[in-house]
């Protein structure tokens, strides 16, 4: 284990990657839209060996008192024990909570969902959009895969029928969840002095720091989160911002 880690670090220090990708290159991305019927929207995203299934469930709820005419967005994440020997059943871990909150922040702060259009009766009934992220296979970079999956699932989510104050499950209407942009994140890790986009699980295990940048279609940044024990210099961040916006544009084309 120690030998393997040393090997991974040695390779990274030369600026190279085990899978021979460039430092700013993503692995192959496959997005499967609406693989499931039960949820109102769903998507399976694969980045390399990482697999994330996102499901969108809609329900009618009372609005929050401070946002009487707005629908509600909730994002949850589960690191299924299917996905890694490191993941265990039980209440959400710190990593699962951070993952969900970073995706939540990216979607919320980008104002991608027009929440006002999800109001049915002001102060009484609004649509609640639950986005659940189910991690199936951890090959690294769960945040970017999750955010892609969440956005892809929201893009094809259709409202169920709502009749006489009740939701009729299973009967989808043609009305879509009102999306105004496609938010997504780009993750970089730092190993030694080198920066790598879209880290594999191996690269994550030897990285000293990590930063996730949420971007919108217009190139604006809408969320950021630094992880890992080490830090970044301002100059490193400048480079990362530029790359994240650029890579974000490329990823968005695949949606």
């Amino acid at each position: 284990m120690i030998l393997r880690n040393q090997y991974l670090v040695d390779i990274a220090l030369t600026g190279k990657r085990l899978d021979e990708r460039k430092a700013d290159e993503f692995r192959k991305i496959i997005i499967e839209k609406s693989p499931l019927e039960k949820p109102e929207g769903s998507a399976l995203v694969k980045i390399g060996t990482t697999q994330v299934m996102a499901g969108v469930k809609l329900d009618v709820k009372e609005p929050f008192p401070d946002a009487q005419n707005e629908g509600i967005l909730m994002v949850g994440a589960e690191l299924s024990p299917l996905a890694s020997p490191e993941f265990e059943r039980g209440p959400p871990t710190e990593d699962a909570i951070e993952l969900a909150r970073v995706v939540d922040r990216t979607i919320r702060e980008s104002h991608a969902i027009d929440l006002e259009k999800l109001c049915i009766t002001e102060g009484e009934k609004v649509w609640m959009v639950n986005v659940d992220l189910h991690i199936l296979d951890n090959g690294g970079n769960l945040v970017d895969a999750s955010c892609l999956a969440a956005t892809a699932a929201l893009m094809n989510a259709k409202l169920p029928k709502y009749e006489d104050g009740k939701v009729v499950w299973g009967e989808k209407t043609n009305k879509k969840v009102p999306l105004v942009c496609k938010p997504l994140t780009v993750t970089h890790v730092k190993i030694g002095q080198n920066l790598f986009a879209d880290p594999t699980e191996d690269e994550e295990s030897v990285a000293t720091a990590k930063v996730m940048i949420g971007t919108k279609d217009d190139g604006n940044i809408c969320a950021m989160q630094k992880g890992g024990g080490d830090g970044f210099t301002f100059q490193e961040l400048e480079k990362i911002f530029e790359k994240s916006v650029e890579l974000g544009k490329q990823l968005r084309k695949q949606l």
Partner: peptide
Amino acid sequence: LQMDGDLP
């Protein structure tokens, strides 16, 4: 480093 918002 964290951020909530919408900025170039």
